[in-house]
């Protein structure tokens, strides 16, 4: 039963990824990204962390996907016809991605990874994440908040028209 649900999520990730990468119309790219992110949230849940799964849904699906959709609506990218095919560029991109994929797969299959016994259930509690963020990884947490502040300020500055109405 758990296997079936797991295969469902893997299927969602692959279908979503395929739509996101291989479709030529930008609307289907976005829908594919949404499906893929949802499947990934399910996989995170299977991998033991419901908190990270909830955060993935909250931030990626509820925030980032909505922002991309918004930007797309404001730039009317979806009403444009798909751009003409560029077989040379697509071909080289496919070769590059395939080479990378096959090469890294060779690397992974010949490597041996350390295995550890599964952690007890109370090691996955949310309280541990909270205390880790504020004690061990405090610097990273504060840096992330500074980065987000800079991103907000930068985004406002870049996209704002100046007082004469022209874009800065």
């Amino acid at each position: 039963m758990e296997q079936a649900v797991q295969y469902l999520f893997v299927g969602l990730v692959l279908i979503g990824g395929g739509m996101a990468a291989l479709s030529r119309h930008v609307l289907y790219n976005i829908i594919g990204l949404g499906i893929s992110l949802f499947g990934l949230a399910g996989l995170f849940l299977q991998l033991g962390s419901p908190f990270v799964a909830a955060m993935q849904l909250l931030i990626y699906l509820g925030g980032i996907t909505v922002a991309i959709v918004f930007a797309m609506m404001l730039s009317i990218a979806m009403t444009l016809d798909p751009p003409p095919r560029t077989p040379v560029k697509t071909g080289f991109a496919a070769i590059a991605a395939l080479t990378f994929g096959v090469g890294l797969h060779g690397l992974i299959s010949t490597a041996t990874f350390a295995t550890a016994p599964p952690a007890p259930a109370d090691a996955w509690a949310v309280a541990h994440i909270g205390s880790a963020l504020l004690e061990r990884y405090n610097l990273v947490f504060e840096t992330l908040s500074v980065v987000l502040l800079l991103a907000i300020i930068g985004a406002i500055l870049i996209a704002r028209p100046d007082r004469t109405g022209k874009v800065a």
Binding site: V13, L14, G17, G18, A20, A21, L22, V26, N29, S36, A77, P83, T86, K89, T90, F92, A93, A94, A96, A97, L98, F100, G101, L104, H105, I108
Partner: peptide, 16 residues
């Protein structure tokens, strides 16, 4: 790895 390769292809091949 498959997801990463798909992402790499999307970055390189799309014009939008």
């Amino acid at each position: 790895l498959v997801l990463f390769s798909l992402g790499l292809f999307a970055v390189l091949a799309h014009r939008n």
